[in-house]
Simulated scan of single mutants.
Amino acid sequence: MLRKLYDWTLSLAARKSAEWWLAFIAFVESSVFLVPADVLFLPMALSRPARAYRYAIVATVASVLGGIAGWFLGHYAYEAIAKPVLEFYGKFDDFEALRVSSGVGFILLMLITSGLAHLPPIKVVTILSGVIGFPLGWFILSAIVARGARFLFLAWLLRTYGEPIREFIEKRLGTLAALAAAALISLYILVRYAF
């Protein structure tokens, strides 16, 4: 099922309405959808490099708006909507563990790492932010910074290096971003508990 969903998302890049689909996928990825917007963003930016930054801005704005929707789901409709979504994706136990142990500083860190590296998945963090009542203004600001940095960096890579960088992005960028996120988390834990 996941492979079919991935292939379907990738097929949207060839359509005339691809930009609208990118906005839609980026929006729902931040609150309920499993496939990241990168799957659509990468082929679109490669096929029309002159529009890479435009696509990055579309993906960022839609992702932030989707994150706000996830925040509202968590804050106002956790039992009715958010909990079933998390259970459907098998993320409910992870979510509950995060919910019990998360403070405001840790949520901010997770918003940045999930925005940059999908670690943890962005939909989990947006819903969690709403559930614990993380300040919406800080939520929006961190989402703009993290998601904007991710999409604009990908746009820059694709405009600068073109097709040869695609394999690197698809296979290694996630690992590098995850390592950077792990370093941020480690630094946070070190500062919080060592000093």
Rank of each mutant, 00 (worst) to 15 (best):
G103H: 03
A183G: 04
G90V: 00
R51S: 11
G133E: 12
Y161V: 09
L109E: 06
G137W: 09
I112T: 00
F72I: 02
K91P: 01
A178S: 13
Y78S: 00
L187S: 15
S47V: 10
F95V: 02
A97M: 14
Y188W: 10
D93T: 14
V145I: 15
P49H: 07
V131P: 04
F88K: 12
P84W: 10
R150H: 01
L141A: 14
A178Q: 05
I144G: 00
A52F: 09
L154R: 01
L176C: 15
V191A: 15
I122Y: 15
P135C: 07
A143D: 08
I169T: 06
F134C: 00
I144C: 09
I107R: 13
G137E: 14
G174S: 11
L141R: 01
P120W: 07
S114G: 12
Y89T: 13
R147H: 01
V58P: 00
S114L: 12
R54H: 13
P120V: 10
S63Q: 01
V85D: 03
S129N: 13
V61W: 07
E163G: 04
G70Y: 03
D94M: 13
S142I: 05
A82L: 02
R147V: 00
L98V: 07
E87T: 06
G66T: 08
H118C: 06
L128A: 02
L109S: 12
R159T: 11
R159H: 11
I132H: 00
I140N: 13
R54G: 12
L46W: 12
S114H: 11
A45R: 08
V61N: 00
V100F: 11
G133D: 02
Y188S: 08
F95D: 03
A62M: 03
I169K: 05
R51G: 03
A183L: 15
T126L: 03
R159D: 05
T175P: 08
M110N: 04
G174I: 08
A77L: 13
A62D: 03
A177K: 11
L128K: 09
I132S: 02
V131D: 08
R172L: 07
A69M: 14
G90K: 10
T160W: 06
G103N: 12
G103V: 07
A45S: 07
T113D: 07
A97C: 11
F151C: 06
V100C: 04
F88E: 01
I127Q: 00
R150G: 06
D93L: 06
Y89D: 05
T160E: 12
Y89I: 13
W138F: 06
L141E: 05
I132K: 09
S114T: 15
A155Y: 06
A77F: 15
G103T: 09
K123I: 08
R48W: 01
P120N: 02
I57K: 01
E170Y: 14
I127M: 07
F139Y: 03
T60A: 06
F139W: 05
L173Q: 01
Y161G: 04
I107W: 12
R150I: 00
Y188P: 07
F95G: 02
E79S: 03
G67N: 00
R51T: 05
V145N: 12
L111W: 02
D94E: 15
A146M: 09
V104F: 10
D94N: 14
